[in-house]
Design a protein around this nucleic acid. Sequence first.
DNA 1: ATTACTTTGTGAATTACTTCACAAGCATCC
DNA 2: GGATGCTTGTGAAGTAATTCACAAAGTAAT
Lengths: 208, 208
Amino acid sequence: MKRIAESTVRRLSLYLSFLEGIERQGLKTISSDELARLGGTTSAQVRKDLSLFGSFGKRGLGYAVPELSKQLREILGLGKQWRVCIIGAGKIGAALARYRGFAERGFIVTAIYDIDEAKIGKRFESLTVRPISELEKDAAKHEYDIAVVATPAESTPAVVKQAVRAGIKAILNFAPVQISVPSDVTVRTVNMAMELEGLSFALSNRAD
Amino acid sequence: MKRIAESTVRRLSLYLSFLEGIERQGLKTISSDELARLGGTTSAQVRKDLSLFGSFGKRGLGYAVPELSKQLREILGLGKQWRVCIIGAGKIGAALARYRGFAERGFIVTAIYDIDEAKIGKRFESLTVRPISELEKDAAKHEYDIAVVATPAESTPAVVKQAVRAGIKAILNFAPVQISVPSDVTVRTVNMAMELEGLSFALSNRAD
DNA sequence: ATTACTTTGTGAATTACTTCACAAGCATCC
DNA sequence: GGATGCTTGTGAAGTAATTCACAAAGTAAT
């Protein structure tokens, strides 16, 4: 299958969230045009995005909501259960350990790690903070799919290296640094400073 | 000046963060090639990004680190102080109210709002939660530049409408929904579910 | 002052992404 | 069952973003 752009995947996520809302309202079908309006895009874009994976619509009618919803979940690999570990038990890590949204979407948080002696043994919900040195050994047993990295800038490169060595193929990065990984590992970075700077840029360059 | 792509702005942010690190290490100059390596891009990309705003380098030498750093801060509109209000005093809103990173970068958090009677009057750091109904009146006095929206999905559209009516031109959206605003308002959305789904997609479609 | 070497800045070429536009399919009505 | 109306799926066209490739400008060494 040919390469799918990240922007496409983001839109698929978005469509799915709309479909779930619409499904709850009990509507049975939806057109590419309505989906486009919800997502701030064009109907052609919606159809092209979906057509990369198959033809799910009926001409003249649109898309059956539960059907398309199911297909998108399938495409996005939801439905599978992914095993997640959190690395870094600071403020963000702790907040994530308490976050309900993971389990709701089939992401099972299995462990939380830190380097800091003082934090090891602390409990967050049902998880006890473990030393990062155990990561690789644990991974051999537990087969983590995703590492959520929430460490300070300095320790991040080393932590990422360990995660990669442990065979983890997807990283959600909250550390305020760029991370480098082999090409078979996927990274998504969430960086407050970068988002704020983007807004600052937009504000500074309005109307010229 | 011509339209700058969001991807370009993201890279500028990234370059700036590298330069700040390099400045601390005391290095005086850097080449587009080194910046590219740090940022996981190409030297041509770096040069093109910068050339959109001027010519900051010296042929044969590279870029003077403090100089380029200063220019990027200028381009990104840092240095100005931006006035920020947080809307939504739930978990995320509360965490953001305590977050030090805003002030460090010149973003002054001035107020936090909520609809919920029970939350109004609560204190986070130096801020007291105010009723959202006061937003517009406050904005007339305080001239907010940025609203950070951290509300549940249902209440978000109404809240965003109020923020727009209050004259706010930039929104950082943590609510798990798409928000629609007039074209002179800039929005950046941070959505955990969407990031996780992106990783799930990548994991599901490896090696084909 | 000439030569050798480095690295920028930028048009041109390429690649990626989006939008257009329309034939084909399906439902409904008369 | 033919005509009408609607909406998909998709090549082709159009934009946008990235990479190539090289002249121009600088440094350093002799």
